[in-house]
């Protein structure tokens, strides 16, 4: 199973300590991504997708408690690496681009200063000022932005949202080699710019043979930019399969419900969506986390937690509708 996996998250369970107890946000997340693969994660706000990514990058807040689980890169569990080794690893290997490009860029520094900073700190060798400047220009060019010198001397507020996001992408990829995590990278952008940015991410990841984790709440965005998809709900990966299958043959009631509620260009009815809300993370009900919103929940769903079962080749679902190994079947 070894060398084709770039990253493997195994049974990750994370709680947040808050007033009143613990929020048991991640409940055994299983996730993997291979080299040169593009994976999408779909999930609603609060489902745990950002928490998972933050765990991978070890950017968690102070009150996060990792109860169990491993995050394997090669044969190393990055959760157990010491800080120094991990920083070196993260610097060279991983990068993340965030949803709001304005927050990700420091408003009081010029673009050039920020890019040069990244290059300087990520580089092993000492670079001269001229080298830094040239590398910064290369970075701007790599995301098809013209007029590099002007952009480098600008401050973030002087640029449009689309340009800022391109710069964030440029910053992210300038040093990262292996994995790019894009967390809702186009939510704050216009539709036409959105298309451009996604294409850029697509192009870059293919060119550099980088793996890509694309997180979104929009099913339309991930359809053409990913090879494989995960659907996340309340801290569990409830379904995963090759992208095409998710849209043509969704299995988990949540996924089915979601797809039914999206308005179509071809017209026709769309449902009210999925009634209810995410479970109370403080006191989650035993069993399946989707039980109270599921129109097809059964007795066993309230008692046991479903595990991921391979229903068709490469198509995994965590649901008792497909798992006949539960205690009463």
């Amino acid at each position: 199973m070894g060398d084709n996996y770039l990253l493997k998250v195994e049974n990750l369970t994370v709680d947040y300590k808050v007033y009143g107890g613990y929020l048991k946000v991640l409940d055994g997340v299983n996730f993997y991504i291979k080299n040169n693969e593009r994976v999408g994660i779909i999930g609603e706000t609060g489902c745990g997708k950002t928490t998972t990514m933050k765990s991978i990058l070890r950017l968690q807040t102070n009150n996060a408690v990792i109860r169990q689980g491993k995050i394997m890169v090669g044969d190393q569990n990055i959760l157990e690496m010491n800080d120094k080794d991990f920083h070196a690893f993260r610097r060279k290997g991983l990068a993340m681009i965030f949803q709001e490009p304005m927050i990700a860029l420091n408003p009081v520094f010029t673009i050039g200063q920020q890019i040069e900073d990244v290059i300087y700190y990520a580089s092993d060798t000492k670079l001269s000022r001229a080298d830094l400047k040239q590398k910064a220009r290369d970075v701007i060019a790599s995301v098809s932005l013209p007029d590099a010198d002007r952009i480098l001397s600008n401050y973030p507020f002087q640029l449009s949202g689309g340009m800022r996001q391109r710069i964030c992408i440029a910053l992210a990829i300038s040093m990262a080699q292996k994995l790019l995590i894009a967390d809702e990278p186009t939510t704050a952008l216009d539709v036409t710019i959105q298309a451009q940015i996604l294409e850029l991410i697509d192009q870059i990841s293919k060119q550099r043979k980088m793996s890509l984790i694309l997180i979104s709440h929009s099913l339309g965005l991930t359809r053409n930019t990913t090879d494989r998809m995960y659907v996340m709900y309340a801290g569990v990966m409830i379904e995963s399969c090759p992208t095409k299958q998710l849209y043509e043959n969704p299995l988990h009631p949540y996924t089915v419900g979601l797809l039914k509620s999206i308005p179509r260009l071809t017209g026709g009815e769309f449902s009210n969506g999925i009634p209810g809300r995410l479970p109370d993370y403080m006191n989650p009900l035993p069993g399946c986390r989707f039980q109270d919103r599921c129109s097809r929940s059964m007795d066993i769903c309230r008692r046991q937690k479903p595990v991921e079962i391979e229903v068709e080749p490469e198509h995994y679902v965590a649901c008792f509708l497909f798992d006949h190994n539960g205690d009463n079947q």
Partner: peptide, 15 residues
């Protein structure tokens, strides 16, 4: 604008 719309099925894409 229409060509940038993210859709979720092939039949919509064809439109």
């Amino acid at each position: 604008l229409l060509s940038s719309i993210p859709v979720i099925s092939a039949e919509e894409e064809n439109l």
